[in-house]
């Protein structure tokens, strides 16, 4: 484990150079650049706000829009980490066949790229909140996000690593994950508020959903300036430890065999 981290650190220049390349390619592919790739969450937010803010959001469109955009940023980060994670080893096969770096460096490449993308979307939420509240000290709220973002990042890295390994053995993993993520999207209070499920006595569905904890840890402090209850942090941290443990297990089990299956 420590050896692993030391190796990642030793090759940090390689890793960062590739992450930079990925981002540049992502944003250069179109005239609008950065704006183009943010257009998707922004458009989704706009549609949701127009259509659903009264129906599902409780009436305050600006609050609803900020909440949806924050949720979409975090949700998109987790989903894309898992989906892109699946393709990681295939995408980096040439490097894997050439040098004995720990494979987690490649999943880290995938996840870091997605993380920066998600942070850009979150910074837009922050600007929205700052404008609507017309207060500058909302900047303090960013500090409240640090533990949440750490927990989310570690979870995403672990999930991407697990997905990457499984996809080498079962190449349809990515399709199954796509279906699964569609399912989870509707199960998670992203475009609706949890009140709707609470009223039907389905609140437990939300309380047991790790994605919900992660969304709340980000959007609640960002929108209200208050921390979520401590137990939610504990649950989320426990979840991220669990998936990290799983990922380490998968690595210990498969990393010596992976190259023969690529």
């Amino acid at each position: 484990m420590l050896q692993h981290i030391a190796a990642v650190w030793r090759y940090r220049y390689f890793l960062l150079a590739l992450v930079k390349l990925d981002l540049r390619q992502r944003y250069r592919r179109s005239v609008l650049g950065l704006g183009w790739s943010l257009l998707h969450p922004l458009a989704m937010t706009a549609v949701f706000t127009v259509v659903f803010s009264n129906l599902l959001g409780g009436g305050d469109p600006t609050h609803y829009a900020a909440s949806v955009l924050a949720s979409l940023a975090v949700w998109g980060f987790l989903r894309d980490s898992a989906l892109q994670g699946c393709r990681t080893f295939q995408a980096n096969e040439a490097y894997i066949r050439q040098s004995p770096l720990p494979y987690t460096i490649y999943t880290l490449r995938t996840v870091l790229g997605q993380a920066i993308h998600a942070l850009i979307a979150l910074s837009i939420v922050f600007v929205m909140v700052a404008i609507f509240k017309q207060e500058i000290h909302v900047a303090l709220r960013l500090i409240l996000l640090v533990p949440a973002l750490l927990i989310i990042f570690v979870s995403a890295w672990a999930i991407a690593t697990i997905a990457a390994y499984i996809n080498v053995y079962f190449h349809d993993t990515v399709h199954l994950l796509e279906v699964g993520s569609q399912f989870l999207f509707f199960l998670t209070p992203i475009m609706y508020s949890r009140r709707i499920l609470d009223e039907k006595d389905l609140g437990w569905l939300v309380d047991a959903n790790p994605v919900y904890w992660m969304l709340e840890m980000v959007r609640h402090p960002l929108l209200t300036g208050e921390l979520v209850p401590l137990e939610m942090y504990i649950h989320a941290a426990a979840f991220s430890l669990l998936v990290t443990g799983l990922a380490l297990g998968v690595i210990a089990w498969l990393h010596k065999r992976l190259i023969f299956h690529l």
Binding site: Y11, A17, L21
Partner: peptide, 17 residues
């Protein structure tokens, strides 16, 4: 998609530079 110069950099970092 990266230039020759950039690829020199990536590969050199991969070799531990």
């Amino acid at each position: 998609d990266a230039s020759g110069w950039e690829n020199i950099v990536y590969r050199a970092y991969l070799q531990g530079e």
